[in-house]
Amino acid sequence: MTGGRRAAKFVTMDTMHATCVSVFGDRLSGCLLLGPSGSGKSDLAVRLIDGGGTLVADDRVIITARDGLATAAPPPLLAGLLEIRGLGVMTVPFLGEADIRLLVCLTNADDIERMAPITSQHLNGVDIPCLLVDASKASAAARVRWAVRRVLAYGTLNSVKTLVPKPAAESGPAPDNERDRSADGTECGVGVGPGPESRPESGPEDNEDRDG
């Protein structure tokens, strides 16, 4: 111990070719966008930022692993710089550091299974959930937000994999109050009597009987 402070148990640092955005604009919701040059990292970052996120680092990211948690930070010379295709390199607000909750691996949609198995990757010794995304899809940013939100809430990307139907009830006559309709289409179990057309019209004989 030095100066009354506890030293970190395990620290590693590395620089990666990637882009990092805090999806919800705070230190807790960082996602690391990974992919070859031209795969859409900066373009997806623009959409995430436009949807409420904050840039951490573009093109180069300093990754630090400490006590089982990976964080991202910008190199000093690139802090606050974001490349926007057609506009050039722009200066934008940024975070100096964010925890990496999700790895977003950019690939072609044809390579992504509809119900892809959930995987994770080791980043400087830290196990982090990984999501495959086609950055060219209109829903790409929304998928990333959904994934980060789930990791923050549950610590995992795992979800319900199968929907098991309930066993069908045994066949048999339904109780009177559960039958939906009678043979003539009127609702059952409501105390509906015969309609006016089914009542016999009273005649003179009936009136005489009542008078007598």
Rank of each mutant, 00 (worst) to 15 (best):
L123Y: 01
A116E: 15
G191M: 04
A135L: 02
L131K: 08
P204A: 12
T15W: 00
I128V: 15
D58Y: 09
A79N: 06
V164H: 14
V56K: 04
I84S: 00
P117V: 09
A18G: 04
D99K: 12
R27K: 11
G125H: 06
E178A: 11
L81W: 04
V164D: 09
I63H: 03
P173H: 09
K9E: 13
L103Q: 03
L77M: 12
G38E: 13
A138Q: 12
M90F: 08
K137T: 12
R181E: 12
E197P: 01
L28M: 07
T19P: 01
A8I: 03
G185D: 13
A57N: 02
G80T: 02
V56D: 00
R60F: 01
K9C: 02
D58N: 11
Y154M: 14
G68M: 13
R150W: 06
L87R: 09
T107C: 14
G35W: 03
S136R: 15
M13Y: 06
K9Y: 10
G203D: 10
R5I: 04
D209C: 05
S120Y: 08
R101L: 05
H122W: 08
G212T: 06
P167G: 09
P165L: 06
R6F: 06
P117F: 05
D59G: 02
I63D: 01
D67E: 10
P36D: 14
P75C: 05
I49K: 01
F10S: 15
M90D: 05
M1P: 14
L102T: 10
V192Q: 13
T64Y: 04
L34F: 05
I100E: 04
K161L: 11
E97T: 10
G35Q: 07
I112H: 10
A138G: 01
T107Y: 00
V46E: 01
P175I: 00
P36G: 06
P74M: 06
T156E: 11
A135C: 03
G191C: 01
T186A: 15
L123K: 02
D209N: 11
S139I: 15
P74V: 03
E178T: 02
L55G: 03
P75N: 05
R47Q: 13
G191N: 14
L78D: 08
A174D: 00
N108H: 15
M1S: 08
A98Y: 03
V61E: 05
P129D: 08
A116Q: 15
D211E: 10
C105V: 06
R101T: 11
R149E: 11
D209K: 15
S202H: 14
C188A: 13
G68F: 08
V160L: 11
E113H: 10
R150L: 06
I118Q: 06
V151P: 00
M13H: 05
C105K: 09
G212V: 04
N108I: 14
Q121C: 15
L123N: 04
V61H: 04
A98I: 00
C20I: 01
T12G: 09
P200V: 12
Y154Q: 07
E197V: 07
V164K: 13
L132W: 05
E113K: 11
I100K: 02
C188F: 07
T2I: 13
G193L: 11
S120H: 14
V21R: 04
S39N: 06
R210I: 11
A169W: 09
E170V: 10
S120R: 12
S42T: 04
F10Y: 08
H17A: 02
A8L: 07
R101S: 04
K166I: 07
M90R: 12
